[in-house]
Design a protein around this nucleic acid. Structure first.
Length: 263
DNA sequence: ACCTCATGAGTAG
DNA sequence: TACTCCTGAGGTA
């Protein structure tokens, strides 16, 4: 489930199981073999997540950069369950834990110092603690200066990193904003609300491991199938206004929203 | 055995 | 805007 919250969880998993340890890295599928050799048997200094990108820093000044894209997935197992299932691009393991990576858009080893260029292109990440509100300020500045639709801006990783198609739809619904509204037409208070709500929702996402955006569903045990207001609810009655949730295509991605609530 | 879909993003034109 | 890449799951036959 690759929006930012799940990448944070992956970084946490790597730090819990592998940080400070020498880990084995190989590529059962073969496509990551030569890169894997460069970090195999090295100590994982730290795992970091920025937006949808995961960075694994090793003790030889190399970083493994991983981006799941739309298909990528992690599978964690006990090390004795080590049969290869499907196309395992990369396997990270010790005697105590094992993580398999399949279908990523990127899984590459790069000099740690060269990662800075990429990191600088990423917009503020709502999961990043922001006591001085510098990230919030950066987000507000970018949105308020853009004529692009806010529905596009939230998906743009240089504007805000970690938001994907689910959070985009849900955050706009909760703010009551029409996704087609140009960023520059929004009130400062609206842009601020979008940021603050992103922080709030992604924090829930990191804790729950699921994008629960209807807070009244949080009390329920497990993950409710009615956890979202509009995502994948086209044709159904809006939980709030009883109008009909609609779907349209925006920049080749499905956009779900409620014309009754968002205007 | 097929077909379609998915929480993404780079590139060409 | 269209095409490309990555992989598996679920539905239909």
């Amino acid at each position: 489930m690759p929006e930012g919250h799940s990448v944070q969880r992956t970084a946490n998993w790597f730090n819990e199981h592998f940080k400070g340890q020498k880990i084995k890295v190989d590529s059962p599928q073969g496509r990551f073999s030569s890169d894997a050799k460069r970090i195999n048997n090295r100590v994982l200094v730290k795992a970091r997540a920025i937006g949808k990108q995961l960075f694994l820093d090793f003790d030889n000044d190399l970083t493994c950069r991983i981006h799941l894209g739309i298909y990528g997935k992690w599978r964690y197992s006990e090390p004795f369950h080590n049969e290869i299932v499907g196309e395992v691009r990369a396997r990270f393991y010790t005697k105590a834990a094992l993580a398999d990576l399949r279908g990523p858009t990127y899984c590459q080893v790069v000099a740690t110092e060269d990662m800075v260029h990429l990191e600088n292109k990423l917009g503020p990440d709502p999961t990043n603690p922001d006591p001085r509100k510098l990230n919030q300020k950066r987000f507000i500045e970018k949105v308020s200066k853009s004529k692009s639709a806010i529905g596009l801006l939230l998906m743009n990783q240089s504007v805000i990193s970690g938001i994907g198609n689910v959070y985009r739809a849900e955050i706009l619904f909760r703010a009551g904003i029409d996704p087609h509204t140009p960023g520059s037409n929004l009130l400062m208070s609206q842009i601020t609300e979008l940021w603050v709500d992103s922080v709030k929702l992604m924090k829930i996402g990191v804790q729950k491991g699921a994008m629960v955006t209807r807070e009244d569903q949080l009390a329920k045990r497990g993950i409710s199938s009615e956890r979202n207001y509009v995502y994948k609810r086209e044709g159904f009655k809006c939980f709030r206004c009883k109008g009909t949730v609609v779907i349209e295509v925006m920049a080749s991605r499905k956009l779900y929203w409620c014309p009754g609530c968002q205007n």
